[in-house]
Amino acid sequence: MVTEILGIIIAALLSQNFILVKFYGICPFMGVSKKIDTALGMGMAVTFVMALASAACWAVNWLLVKLNITYMQTVAFILVIATLVQVVEMFLKKSIPALYKALGVFLPLITTNCAVLGVVLVNVQNNYNFLLSVLNGAAGGLGFTLAIVLFASVRERVNKADCPECFKGFPIALIAAGLLALAFMGFSGLSIS
C-alpha cells in the first residue's frame, strides 16, 4: 500500500508529469506562465479542482459501471468537471473572496484544462479506489504546479534576454518548453515497486 502510494506520487509529480511527459493541459501551461506568482496561483487552483474532480468522478464512474454504460465516461466526466468548477467558483466568491480574487480568471479557465479530464481518466483506467483517486488528483495537480512554476521562472529570464527578434516572445517560449520536457524525460525510468 505504501509503495503504491509513493509510486502514484512520484509518477504524478515527475515520471508521468501531466504537462511535461503526457502533454495534457498545454493551453494554461503556455497561457498563464508569464509570471511566477500567477503561475503558482493557477497551479494551486488546478490542484484543488483536480482533487475534487477525482473524488466526484469516482462516484459517477461507480454509477456508470453499475449500469454498464462506461462508454459514456468522457461525457459524464466533462459534465462533472464543468459543474464542479462553477460551484467552486461560487463558493469561493461567497466564502473566501480573497482567494477568489487571487485566482481571478484562472478558475473558469480550469473547465477547459484537459489535464483535469486526463487525471480522472487515468484513475479509471488504473482502477484506483477512492483514496488513491483523490491522491492521484492532488499529486497530479502538484505536478502541474511544479511544471508551470519551473517554466514561468525560465520564461521570466528568457523574456529579459536579448534574443533574435523573430524568436522573441512565444517562439522562444515554445523552445524552452520543449527543453524542459526533454529534461523531464530523464525521470522516465523512475519507479517504485
Binding site: V60, L67, I69, M72, V75, A76, L79, V80, T83, V87
Partner: peptide
C-alpha cells in the same frame, strides 16, 4: 436517462 439525470441533478445543484 443517466446522462439526462446527471445533467438535471447538476443543474439543480448549480
Amino acid at each position: 436517462a443517466v446522462l439526462g439525470g446527471l445533467g438535471l441533478a447538476f443543474g439543480l445543484v448549480l
